[in-house]
């Protein structure tokens, strides 16, 4: 589904990604872990197409298309979704209208008729259950005055509405208490299928107790330095990131 080869990127003059390789197949959940500043969020942003980052090398193939050549909105319409670490507050744009616009833009791209008001409402009601988000929140301005948990639930709700093929969750667990974390994880798990895939970016292992990954990768200093199964996450939790750093330093000496 997504095949990344030797991906390099920088922001301004600072090299952040220094050659990432990653292969994600339908039905898989991959977790990217790593200490602060290792490049996790940069990878998420680069895949979603944030303009501030400049790709300096490598390639990313998404469903047979060159992902890096696409505008952010086209990536979304092709089925990529980024759940933001910091969802943006946009006063004056109603959440419902925004989601309706997004859903219908995607349908237009797929050659489908736009959903009428009744169909849209019906779909919305279904998906609202998933993340236990209520109507009053959705009639407010987008993320404006939402609590941290409400913002993250709103991200997952949007994901449910847009039904992406590949969803990237950028530190979706940050700022969540345990109940909110469960709700969010539960939403994600219900959306898992053999046809879609997830890339879960996280600093802590605890999210992975709820969203169980097929593969875990450790990102350090702009590169994936270890890959393994979910046991790797537990090992990291136990030993901390320092053991990876120590191993790497031992190897270079």
């Amino acid at each position: 589904m997504l095949k990344i080869e030797n991906l390099q990127a920088r922001i301004e003059e600072k090299e952040i990604l220094k050659g990432i390789n990653l292969d994600i197949k339908p039905g898989e959940v991959h977790a990217i872990m790593g200490p602060n500043g290792s490049g996790k969020s940069t990878l998420a942003s680069v895949l979603a197409g944030r303009e501030a980052y400049e790709v300096t090398g490598g390639s990313a193939d998404f469903l047979g298309k060159d992902l890096l050549e696409m505008a952010p909105e086209d990536r979304a319409k092709e089925g990529l979704f980024l759940a933001f670490q910091y969802p943006v507050e946009i006063p004056g744009v109603s959440t419902t209208n925004f989601i309706k616009t997004a859903v219908n833009e995607k349908r237009k791209y797929q050659g489908l008729e736009p959903l009428d008001a009744a169909q849209f409402l019906k779909t919305m009601k279904e998906k609202m259950q998933l993340v236990q988000i209520n109507q009053s929140l959705l009639s407010r301005s987008l993320n404006e005055g939402f609590s941290g948990g409400e913002k993250k639930r709103n991200e997952i709700f949007q994901m449910a509405m847009l039904e992406p093929k590949l969803a990237i969750l950028d530190e979706t667990d940050s700022g969540l208490d345990i109940d909110a974390l469960r709700i969010v994880a539960n939403g994600v798990n219900q959306l898992r299928s053999k046809d879609n895939a997830f890339l879960v970016v996280t600093h802590y292992q605890r999210l992975l107790d709820y969203i169980v990954p097929d593969f875990v990768h450790v990102l350090y200093n702009g590169k994936i330095v270890r890959s393994g199964t979910k046991e790797l996450a537990l090992e990291l939790e136990e030993k901390g990131y320092d053991f990876i750093k120590a191993e790497l330093e031992a190897a270079t000496v």
Binding site: G49, E73, A76, K77, V88, F98, A102, E105, Y109
Partner: peptide, 17 residues
């Protein structure tokens, strides 16, 4: 606001819209 603009585009909403 560039962040807001990117947020909307990342949901598939075209630049002009």
């Amino acid at each position: 606001d560039e962040n807001a603009l990117f947020y909307l585009k990342a949901r598939g909403i075209p630049d002009d819209k």
